[in-house]
Structure formats: structure tokens, C-alpha cells
Write a protein that binds this DNA or RNA. Structure first.
Lengths: 163, 163
DNA sequence: GCGTTTCTGTTATGAGATAACATCACGGAC
DNA sequence: GTCCGTGATGTTATCTCATAACAGAAACGC
């Protein structure tokens, strides 16, 4: 995504049967939560899963129509909000982009931390101890922490080697 | 800042002699780094210090002129970039706002984590173990981490009690 | 079927940030 | 002192990101 280097990048999105399966599973989870996986929601999730890395909202808007027609911004933003609410997508605040949630098994909203390669865009979602540490630090300072944004930028192994 | 509650809030910015002293110290540090503390840079830093909590860029733009005249956006964004470069201000990505750096003693750029009260806006900068933990998790995944964004939202002790 | 709720389509606009270029001030070389 | 290079500022314009507001359509419960 960010062109801070000149070597080639592999891409890691889903396609074909794997994409279909992920979408079906997502739909099942949404339905079991008593909500609907409507066409725009499915479409936005599909675009995020196909990409496999953070995507800008206006890229989603541009790619929304299968026929090349762009969507109107609220269509995509509403879908993103829905997907975030169900823990299927996350906003990466530091780059104003959105990414499909890796751990689609887990239901509902969940904390997440991200490792983002500034070169190829590969993004790893980790649920390590980061949240615990920051929540503990917050508690020590008297804060009741409700939500954390943890984003680490750098180079992934492949890009470091290629550089 | 965010009006998610209805009780009163204390504010914690600098003023008078303490503000003057902070600005003088900042200028000394800039000069010793071989750069200049020009009027717009000083003005933006002053606004951030006076506020004591995260401020939106366009609020800085609106308050820039002592006479009530707004600045042009690049004036303020350039000053913010300069202050960030010198570790005197930080961008809070999750709310698109900027805050003066608490640890003005430390020179140069430094990692930081923030505890942000969604009610009164009070923001604590902590340099706890958060960065280390996330950097270690990144290293374990093969990433060379260059920069982290760590922002925890919740309620500070005062707002929790007042709620 | 009928009302309620939820979602979508659409228009418009608000908020955040930067590109590009002309001009101005500072500091060093001579 | 003056010339020149560098870096900062002023200014215009534009680009990107995100949401408010409201009308219409689809799904659901009864």
C-alpha cells in the first residue's frame, strides 16, 4: 500500500472458496447475533477480505460496485461501522484505513493490536499482552480504560530482507 | 472536550509564569538543536500548553491570532510537524487531535502512550512498558518496529466519581 | 395486512490535511 | 556590507476523510 520501497510485494487476501467460506461464516455469526448481513455489508467485508491489508475508505467506495460504479460514502461508512461493531473489521487510526479482522472466530467486539508494515502494507493483528499492560497502567493512574488503540509501524520480515 | 457527560471539568493547562517558563525552555532546546523557535511555532506550542489537553488542529487554526484572526491551515500544520519532530507535541490519531508533550525535559523524539479521558479530555502521557511489550511482540512476529501509536480511552478518576 | 423498526439511497456539507509556489528572513562566505 | 543559499512563511487551491439529514424501501412481529 505505502510505496516507501521499490521491491515487489506478495499479497495475502482471500479469494475463491476461501473468501466464500469466510463470508458465509461471517453471515452466520451476524444472523446468530440477530442482525442482517445485507448486500452492502457483505460487499464491504468481501472487499476487505480480498485485500487482506488495510484499505482506505475511499478505495472501498471506489471499488464498491462490481461494475466499477462507486458507492456513496455513507453506504460504505455505515457498513464499516456495522462490521466494526461485530468485530469483523477494525479502523487503523494511524493511517485512516480499515482492515478485516483476522480472528473472525471470536464473536463480538474485541481488543486488538496491529503490526503494520509501512512498506508492503501487510498487517498482523495480535492479541498479545499489549492491552493488558496499557489497561493496567491506566488503572494505576486512576483511569477506567474502555478501549485501546495500539498500532505499531515498521517493516515486516520480508520487506526488511528485500530492502 | 468531548461532551459525553454533564458535570463540570477542571482544566489543567499552563498560564502566566509557568507558561512563559515552559516556552523559554522549549526555545532553548530548539536552539540547542540548531533550529529556530519562530513566532508561529511558539504560538502553536503556547496554545497547546495553555490547553493542557488534546486540541483539534482547526481549533488551533481558529485561535491562532491573538486578535481573533484565524491562521491558514498550513501555518499550523507546519508548526505541529515541527513540534512533533522535536518531541514537544504529539498527534493523538484516535481523535485527530494534538497535545503538548508532557515530558518536555526529554529531548528529541520519543515514544509515548496516552491515557485519554473521553469525558473531560484530560490526557496523561505515560512512558510505561507499553512500547516495550508491543515492540517485543513485533520482533517475535519478524517486524522491525519503528513507531508505535498507543492510545487508551476511558474515564479518569474524577469523571468516574462525578458520573 | 399493518405498523414498527431497521436499513438503504441521496444530497449536501463539515472536518482534517497537504500540494504548489511566491516571497521573505536569516546566516555564512567573501 | 552584500551576495547567495537555505529554510520558513504566506497564500491559494485542492484533496482526503467522514457525517448530518431526510426520504424511501425492505424486513419483521403480530
Amino acid at each position: 500500500m505505502n510505496a516507501v520501497c521499490d521491491h515487489d510485494h506478495l499479497h495475502s487476501g482471500l479469494d475463491g472458496a476461501r473468501l466464500d467460506r469466510a463470508l458465509s461464516e461471517a453471515e452466520a455469526r451476524v444472523v446468530s447475533a440477530g442482525e442482517r448481513m445485507t448486500p452492502p455489508r457483505r460487499r464491504v467485508l468481501s472487499l476487505l477480505l480480498e485485500s487482506g491489508e488495510p484499505v482506505k475508505a475511499y478505495d472501498l467506495i471506489a471499488r464498491f460496485g462490481e461494475d466499477g460504479q462507486a458507492a456513496k460514502p455513507p453506504t460504505v461508512y455505515r457498513a464499516l461501522e456495522f462490521l466494526e461493531r461485530h468485530g469483523m473489521a477494525h479502523r487503523i487510526a494511524s493511517i485512516s484505513a480499515y482492515v478485516a479482522c483476522a480472528g473472525q472466530e471470536v464473536g463480538g467486539s474485541h481488543a486488538a493490536a496491529f503490526l503494520i508494515c509501512d512498506c508492503c502494507g501487510v498487517t498482523r493483528e495480535i492479541d498479545g499482552p499489549g492491552q493488558d499492560v496499557i489497561a493496567a497502567a491506566g488503572a494505576a493512574a486512576g483511569y477506567a480504560i474502555a478501549r485501546t488503540t495500539i498500532e505499531a509501524h515498521g517493516l515486516c520480515a520480508a520487506c526488511r530482507d528485500a530492502a
